[in-house]
Design a protein around this nucleic acid. Structure first.
Lengths: 145, 145
DNA sequence: TATTGTTATACTCTATAACTATA
DNA sequence: TATAGTTATAGAGTATAACAATA
């Protein structure tokens, strides 16, 4: 006895995934808020912690505009999590260098997101969650390529 | 030989699903654009075609503000896909009534989305796609409940 | 001339407050 | 008084153009 959903789009895979993405985005923002972080600041910091990159390179990787990146880096500096460091080889560029506080902040953010996601994904079996991750990766790869 | 992704968040299920949702949202908007429709107009029209509802009721169901709904209904009227009809029992309310053109527009929009999604989901087996839909539904139900 | 970071500006989207007509 | 629809306005977020410093 399938109950007809009120929303005619509820059976559409694409629509469900859009809604799910919005839900998870809000979940992440709510979880990170007590740490004083927005998702995009965390994202930039996480990439900067692994790769020595300029603002524009970070912007491209994270999918931000270089003009938007200015405010993001301003905020990371204000939080004491990164500094702008002039490149010695090209003095137009700022390398974004995480501070000593960054590693701890990244670890706490990861724990925070882990527990927030665990609460939502808790009903999924490990196999289901692994498959979900794999399918999302495949679809994103296909969409990008 | 696992290659380390550039993006440290690429292994996170939540992050992948956020990106996937954004990708699918853009996919839908691009597919619908030639029909002169945005996703939210289609969404409102699809719900209105199934249920006799006022603007505010539609707004709540679709997740829009009642003030935003004004412009959406304006656009549906401009496209000749729906009209505002004063409720006889409560003359403050407008019932949103799809026109004769609406059914055909909804069918073409559904076909357009089907083929756009088919192009992306094409590599998934029917079982994989069904599981993806089921998992998304379960997660959304859990997040909402 | 071209590029990096920056600022100013415009544009979209959404949210809030206040108005009108009806209840 | 309260509610449905509307308008005006403000705010957040993002994109475009132009500028200074450097290449």
């Amino acid at each position: 006895m399938a109950r007809e959903p009120v929303d005619p789009l509820a059976g559409r895979t694409g629509y469900l995934l859009v809604k799910l993405g919005e839900t998870l985005s809000e979940l992440a923002e709510r979880a990170l808020a007590p740490l004083g972080l927005r998702a995009k600041h965390l994202h930039v910091l996480a990439v900067a912690a692994r790769h020595q990159l300029s603002q524009q390179e970070l912007a491209e990787l994270v999918g931000l505009d270089r003009t938007s990146m200015v405010a993001v880096v301003d905020e990371l500096e204000r939080l004491g999590l990164a500094i702008r460091q002039r490149s010695e080889t090209d003095r137009r560029r700022y390398l974004i260098v995480p501070t000593g506080k960054a590693a701890e902040a990244l670890r706490r953010a990861a724990e925070t997101l882990d527990s927030a996601e665990a609460a939502l994904f808790g009903d999924l079996s490990p196999a289901e969650r692994a498959l979900l991750t794999e399918l999302a990766t495949r679809l994103l790869t296909k969409a990008a390529g």
